[in-house]
Every structure is written in C-alpha cells, then in structure tokens.
C-alpha cells in the first residue's frame, strides 16, 4: 500500500515536470512578448519588470510589420475551407469503401492507411512541382493538397466508425425512401458527427500551424500566420524578437480557444471508433 502510494507520487512528479516542460515555452513566449526587444535575449527567463516592460508596443509593432490581419485572414480561410472539404469528402469516401466491398475498395482503403506513414518531407519537392504544373499554388489549390495529406488519417478514422453503424439503419432509410445521397446526409453523416468533429479538430490544429506547405506553395504572395511571423527575421540575422513573440501569442490564441471548446469531442470521437472496429 505504502509502496504503491510512493509510486503514484513519483509518477505524478514526473508528469508534473513534463507538463511544466511542455508549457514553459508558451509561457516564455507570453512573458517576452511584453519585454522590450533588446531585453529578450539578455534575460529571456525573467518576468518583465519596470525597466524591461514594453507594454503593447511589440503587438502594435508586429501587427504593422507583418500584415498580421491579412495573414490571419488567409490562415482562417485556408484552414476552414480545408477542414470543411476534408470532413465532407473523407467521410463520404470512408462510407463508400466500407459499404461497397470489393477488391478495389479494399486496396483503396489500404492505400489511405499507407499514406499515413509517408512523411511530408519525402514528397514535398515532387509535390510542389506537381502543384505548380497543375496551378494549385494558390490559396484555393492548397485546399486540395491539404485534402490529400489529411485523407489518410481521416478516412481511416471515419471508416472505423462507419463499420460500427448497423447496416440495417441504412437499409431502413432506403425503405423509408432515401436516395444514396439522402441516406448519407440525413442518416449516416449525423451518426458520424462525433468522428467528424474529431477529424475536424485534428486537422484544424495542424493546418492552422502548418508552415512548410504554405511556404513552399504560396508563401511569396499569400502569407499565412506562421509565414508572416517568419518574415520578422530581417536580413543579416536581425530579428525583431519582441514583435515575433507578440505575434506568436496572437497566433496561438485562436487554436487554444478552439481546442478547449472542442476537446471533449476529441476523446468521444476517438473512443467511438475504437470500441467497435
């Protein structure tokens, strides 16, 4: 009894240290966003004091320098559109390849599963080239590319959940008079809602934070937030650290708010697919 209590405390300690380690960078960014830019590299781990406190000047500075509002707009547009497209298409795909059983659908399913293990860096240059040829190097084309990259995991998750829906529900819908499209949107998709929310959250988080893909494809003309912040690096290694910290804070806030409002669905969706597969 005593031994196990010690063990619990020990695990708690380790987890606490880990939690602090993970949260510390965010805290440091937040702290430094209020310091004058020359004090950041001197005393990065200290709280701002009367001497180093710079008020909101970093924020104002950053907003002006980076064109943050516009970047925010592009980020929002790309993220929201991509996620809507991803949820819509991958759920339909998963439904089809789960319900229509053939060698073709089975191999498509495995292809989706396989695509999850291909790292982005491996395909990024060929993909960029193809995207250029196909004129997908704009904020609309990038949505299609995000669909491609997200399809693996999303189809995999949806397919797991579709399998757990009794086929009879769909048959009842057919007898009630649904066409296949109606069956999907009026019966299947509402049942898939928990998984759809999970898929939406997971994709929103990485697409919002994604740097490499927009940088490679549209970075010159259309800057998303991560790229806009990167442009605070001037030439010859001069960086406006203060403005950068401030912009990082602004970039993180929406996704954190989004995460906290939706987090209960993540667990729900992951479990829903897992119990019956």
């Amino acid at each position: 009894m005593k031994g196990s209590k010690l063990k619990v405390n020990l695990i708690l300690m380790v987890l606490l240290i880990l939690a602090i380690a993970f949260l510390a960078p965010i805290l440091i960014v937040l702290m430094n966003s209020f310091k004058g830019k020359f004090f950041i590299s001197d005393t990065p781990f200290l709280l701002p004091n009367s001497k180093t406190f710079a008020g909101l000047s970093n924020y104002v500075n950053g907003l002006i320098k980076t064109g943050f509002i516009q970047a925010f707009g592009w980020s929002l547009f790309i993220t929201v559109s991509s996620v809507v497209v991803i949820v819509l298409f991958t759920s339909m795909t998963a439904w089809y390849i789960t319900r229509v059983k053939s060698k073709l659908t089975k191999s498509i399913y495995y292809l989706f599963a396989f695509s999850m293990i291909v790292p982005f860096q491996m395909v990024m240059f060929t993909m960029t080239k193809v995207a250029n040829v196909l004129h997908l190097d704009n904020p609309f084309g990038i949505i299609i590319i995000y669909l491609g990259f997200a399809a693996g995991l999303s189809v995999f998750m949806f397919a797991g959940f579709v399998k757990s829906i009794p086929l009879e529900i769909e048959e009842a819908a057919v007898i009630d008079g649904c066409s296949p499209i109606q069956t999907f949107f009026m019966v299947v998709f509402p049942i898939l809602k928990p998984t759809a929310i999970t898929v939406a959250i997971l994709n929103t988080m990485w697409i919002w934070n994604d740097y490499l893909l927009p940088y490679l494809l549209i970075g010159n003309e259309y800057k998303t937030i991560p790229i806009a912040i990167q442009y605070l690096r001037g030439g010859y290694g001069s960086i406006d650290m203060g403005a950068m910290m401030a912009m990082l804070v602004l970039a993180i806030i929406p996704i954190i708010v989004f995460y906290f409002t939706c987090q209960k669905y993540i667990i729900k969706g992951v479990i829903a697919g897992a119990i019956k597969g």
Partner: peptide
C-alpha cells in the same frame, strides 16, 4: 409500398 421492421430495430439514433 412496403415497410420493414428489423431485428435490431434500426432506429435513427440522432
């Protein structure tokens, strides 16, 4: 013009 009742009820859960 038929209606069917299934073993597992097949009600729409939502």
């Amino acid at each position: 013009d038929i209606a069917m009742v299934f073993q597992n009820y097949a009600l729409y859960p939502h």
